[in-house]
Write a protein that binds this DNA or RNA. Sequence first.
DNA 1: CTGAAAGCGCTTACAG
DNA 2: CTGAAAGCGCTTACAG
Lengths: 353, 353
Amino acid sequence: MDMKNSTPHRSRAMAPPKRTAKVVTLDHVAELAGVSPSTVSRILNGTAVVSESKKKSVENAIAKLGFVPNPVARGLAGGRTFSIGVVTGAIDSPFYGAALRGVEDELDPAGYNALFVSGHWNEAVETRCLEILRGRRVDGIIALTGRLSDQALKTCAKSIPVVVTGRLLKAAGLFSLNFNNFEGGCLATQHLIDLGHQRIAFIAGPPDHPDANERQRGYRAALEAAGINYEPGLTVAGAFHEVSGLLAVDRLLESRQRFTAIFAANDQMAAGAALGLHRHSLRVPEDVSLVGFDDVPTSQYATPPLTTIHQPAYHLGRLAASAMLQLLVGDKPTLQVPSPVLICRESSRLRNG
Amino acid sequence: MDMKNSTPHRSRAMAPPKRTAKVVTLDHVAELAGVSPSTVSRILNGTAVVSESKKKSVENAIAKLGFVPNPVARGLAGGRTFSIGVVTGAIDSPFYGAALRGVEDELDPAGYNALFVSGHWNEAVETRCLEILRGRRVDGIIALTGRLSDQALKTCAKSIPVVVTGRLLKAAGLFSLNFNNFEGGCLATQHLIDLGHQRIAFIAGPPDHPDANERQRGYRAALEAAGINYEPGLTVAGAFHEVSGLLAVDRLLESRQRFTAIFAANDQMAAGAALGLHRHSLRVPEDVSLVGFDDVPTSQYATPPLTTIHQPAYHLGRLAASAMLQLLVGDKPTLQVPSPVLICRESSRLRNG
DNA sequence: CTGAAAGCGCTTACAG
DNA sequence: CTGAAAGCGCTTACAG
């Protein structure tokens, strides 16, 4: 969403809303069932014990009338909208797409809907997203890794439940879910080492991205554990997108550093790197082994299929939503984030010679 | 979202909503500005001409109090929620992701929000999505290509504006936006013909998918126009996802049909096909030229980068949203859907020999 | 041009 | 266990 001119309450006059055919309301149900509206409401919400007989007749009336409660009215009266705001870095990333679906699938059976807004990896925009969501009176906010400051999140958590992924944070009303990127980074590097590689290049992610940094730490830790000297020249900067992977390979090659394998901090950069190597007539994995991180859907069908660390995006989405649901009922979420798993495909192999 | 057990109004009792610090309401603004709430409302909505002096003082009061109108209350009172429902085949597809962002970017400056729900390419689920959206009292519905029946859409349009992409449909209150898939199919095939290919295989999409069928028609039309005989054995079934492209290549090769090029009805199948060819030690484009359709973000960085028909997903999203905005103010949308464009990359080349 | 009043469709103390 | 009543925060005829 754009930052510019956002004046929701200043929009130009519109055609009068089409007042559609009479909607059936709770009052109609009450009348037909011969009880008070309060009673219908209580039955609907399971808010109080109601005699079986009334319950039956209300349920009949609801069925007969095809009554569906109006969430807008419920929101105003009850102070809850049954909608959860979800801020993401980008709604159009393969990774987030899966996570969003997980959120949706988990929230739906509980009667909640998700309101997605994308922040474009920009703190100012994401902050505005938070405001929009608050303005919409969402009951909770799920922040899927982004640029929001810890402080902003904590402040938000003071008035509304918050669950955040991609970082470790402790605060009241806030729950954080962190995938172990460090371990993933170790795993990927270790895999290459196990294959006999010693000179392993690393394409890093954005320096201010926590996930990227953890993965890099994992890379170094695995090297160290294997007694392999860390070679600064083998680490090149990247930015989590394809071009940066492509460029990184160019730079690596120009530097005349010798390497037999590359670990890219995410799959998108790995894809770019694969193309870069191909451009230089280097074959994957015959000449260079390549490992990515994330296991986005397309990696499985890359040419060659990419060896990578699986990040269970869909599952993480469900977990985040599930934690939110628990927060909403006042429970302290207790759940296990899955460990990183190496998916060994065809882009990595034993070192030659 | 799952179909199973969805009883929004039957969810279990929750902790009482945290009634946060006093929110500033329109009444506060009215009081501070020394006018009636009605007047504040009118200024907010540009609903009537108000004297400059009152306007000024109200604006000051708003600024001073940091007042933000409550959309929930506006929704209940005014019958409009300023939210637009968007039904998509799948929120996690690279194609839809971009379209959704387009919708978001277009709606935001107008003060509208999007409510995304994904239908999983299943008519029953999508129908339920429609109900959820209606239940949420959205002001309009955008249906991005899906399995919904024309009838369901038309019925919906009777009570609320509807914009639909991926099909041609005429009805009051409904606007349809159709990308020319037929022409795209021609273009792709023509490109291959121009390169000297005569035996061009086609990997089809799902038989009940309108886009897929149009693309196939385009394939045949281009062949015919060039005086090339249509060879049924060169067309193999696919299902718009990667594996189906992979399998299609296997079948093609098993059938011992001769071909020098493949046109896959979408990029995902093209990716699968590329892998399939690679598995059979066939090089793209040296041995076989390959063309896809959609130009999803990853295609640009495939190895080799894929020649394809660009479908402007983001732009289509914006157009759909823009049409919705026009419908909402009672205008008849008039807009131009961009024509298909061939993006020539490295997966296609002149036929050998 | 501008108020007072009713109402949108629910929920929730408050009293039985 | 169950009603009557007030209220959530706005909008919109209805009267000046």
